[in-house]
Write a protein that binds this DNA or RNA. Structure first.
Length: 108
DNA sequence: ATTGGGGCCTCCG
DNA sequence: TCGGAGGCCCCAA
């Protein structure tokens, strides 16, 4: 069995993000101690076993575009809008206003 | 908006 | 144990 400690750390950080806000892959990576591991964060989210668990849809790219989603980008956008977030042409609007910066967390 | 180069974590041979 | 490939990325041109 693979070691999923990294994944779990990612999910733990993700749980900090409240409804109506979003964060980025890079910010999560930073909260885990390495700003350069944003891509690995994406991988971890993609492995999320439960779509209704950790709110992966609240994680977007640092330029404000939507990014990927295991359930399909449309579904990601649908969930974001359900949280009251405005999405236009593949970008989240008012990013400065709704961007959440997660608190640094020690990984296991 | 595109593109190329780079770095991080995992899986697989 | 080592090496290569690839992914929900990032950033500078």
């Amino acid at each position: 069995m693979p070691c999923m400690d990294y994944d779990k750390s990612v999910y733990r950080v993700l749980m900090q993000v409240p409804r109506g806000k979003v964060t980025s892959y890079k910010l999560i990576a930073s909260a885990l101690g390495n700003p350069r591991s944003s891509r690995a964060v994406g991988n971890a989210l993609g492995r999320n076993p439960d779509p209704d668990g950790p709110p992966c849809y609240r994680v977007i790219k640092s330029d404000g575009s939507i990014g990927g989603y295991a359930g399909g980008v449309q579904e990601k956008i649908r969930r974001l809008r359900a949280d009251g977030i405005n999405v236009k042409d593949g970008f989240v609007l008012d990013l400065e206003r709704i961007l959440f910066i997660p608190k640094p967390i020690r990984r296991l």
